[in-house]
């Protein structure tokens, strides 16, 4: 009993040490734990997947499967737009989900734009692109800047609204140049495709540690009907549910958990070049399960950061719950003793 009472006066620095150890151990000795996917994450994944030429292209040879050649030959008329609205302070939560969405796009040949109005987010975009493309190019696939994706990069915040509304007509006129100074209309992803405005670029995926995604819902969705998906830090997730419930937000990846869920879906379906299906999600094949083993080297560590982190998260949460229970027992024992002394 004295031990529990003494916890009341425990120096908080001991708590920090306990938490640090609880987090470090699962990171050094990783283990597999179940990650259940939630509907908002599945919806976002399915929408991006529906833009894939592996889903949209014509089956020219009639074998029932869209081959790589057929997918490449398909004149792409869908793309997604990724808006990065955060600095390095929220990277542990948001970076894994940005990497996972980019991986999904590249595996499934969905073109994407990257954009930010925060100057400190510009290098984060470059880092995410290089993490994804460097690793996938090791498999022999060539990923070309301007063809597979366009990095618009940093644009001044004063232009946010004009760009946001201008992209309803023509993205090349609204943003003019990419981060390297190339004119958008000269880049193959614009020049050789049918991608022009929100009609084709019908999903904006906005990652932030704030409610910045609301701007897209207020302006782009209200006026042009564009689908908006958000990637948020866990702190902001609760505020977003009303917009999910009303259908203004089509999907959401919330915190490290959301990122881990998206990583799971990419490894199960996109890595195996499969289209998402609920049936296969519940009854995965051996090939799908092999990619989920985070203790093996099947998937590079860079692509399972959120799942590795979620193991540490789970252990830390258990420890916090134990501390809360012990603290409350100590509090009530102390209160009981005080009442007796009265």
């Amino acid at each position: 009993m004295n031990f529990i009472k003494n916890l009341q006066g425990l120096d908080r620095r001991y708590v920090f040490v306990f938490i640090a150890v609880a987090i470090i151990m699962p990171l050094i000795f990783p283990f597999n734990s179940l990650t259940y996917t939630t509907t908002p994450v599945e919806n976002l994944y399915q929408l991006i997947d529906s833009y894939s030429p592996y889903v949209r292209a014509d089956d020219l040879n009639g074998d029932g499967i869209i081959s790589e050649e057929e997918a490449i030959a398909f004149k792409q008329d869908r793309a997604i737009f990724m808006d990065f609205f955060h600095d390095a302070s929220t990277m542990p939560e948001l970076f894994p989900m940005e990497v996972a969405v980019m991986r999904h796009c590249i595996y499934r040949r969905v073109p994407f734009f990257t954009f930010t109005i925060m100057e400190v987010a510009a290098p984060i975009i470059e880092e995410a692109i290089s993490v994804v493309t460097d690793e996938i190019q090791k498999t022999g696939r060539v990923i070309e800047r301007g063809k597979d994706y366009i990095n618009i990069g940093y644009k001044p915040p004063a232009l946010y609204l004009p760009i946001l509304l201008g992209m309803g007509d023509d993205i090349a006129a609204a943003v003019e140049t990419d981060t390297d100074g190339n004119r958008i209309e000269n880049l193959p992803m614009y020049r050789d495709t049918a991608i022009r405005n929100y009609t084709q670029m019908n999903l904006v995926y906005e990652t932030s540690g704030s409610d910045q995604g609301l701007s897209w819902m207020i302006y782009a969705r209200s006026r042009f009907g564009v689908n908006v998906g958000v990637g948020l830090t866990a702190v902001m997730a609760a505020d977003q549910y009303p917009y999910l419930q009303s259908g203004q937000c089509v999907g959401m990846t919330a915190g490290l958990k959301g990122a881990a869920e998206y990583e799971n879906l990419v490894d199960m379906f996109a890595m195996n070049n499969l289209t998402f299906s609920k049936g296969q999600l519940d009854n995965p094949t051996e090939a799908m399960m092999a990619n989920l083993d985070i203790t093996s080297d099947t998937v590079p560590t860079k692509f399972k950061m959120a799942r590795l982190g979620m193991n540490a998260q789970s252990v830390a949460h258990i420890l916090i719950i134990v501390f809360i229970i012990l603290g409350n027992i100590g509090y009530f024992l102390e209160k009981k003793k005080q009442n007796k002394n009265l």
């Binding site: 938490i19 640090a20 987090i23 470090i24 990171l27 050094i28 302070s89 929220t90 990277m91 542990p92 939560e93 830090t233 866990a234 702190v235 997730a237 609760a238 505020d239 919330a254 915190g255 490290l256 958990k257 560590t301 950061m305 590795l308 982190g309 540490a312 998260q313 830390a316 949460h317 916090i320």
Partner: peptide, 27 residues
């Protein structure tokens, strides 16, 4: 209940930030 959910998410977010840094140190 709403505040509790927000607070729970906040704890999760703060731990995630710590995980990010410790992941970097461990790696």
């Amino acid at each position: 209940i709403g505040f509790g959910a927000s607070f729970g998410y906040t704890v999760m977010a703060r731990i995630s930030l710590l995980i990010g840094r410790l992941q970097f140190l461990a790696d």
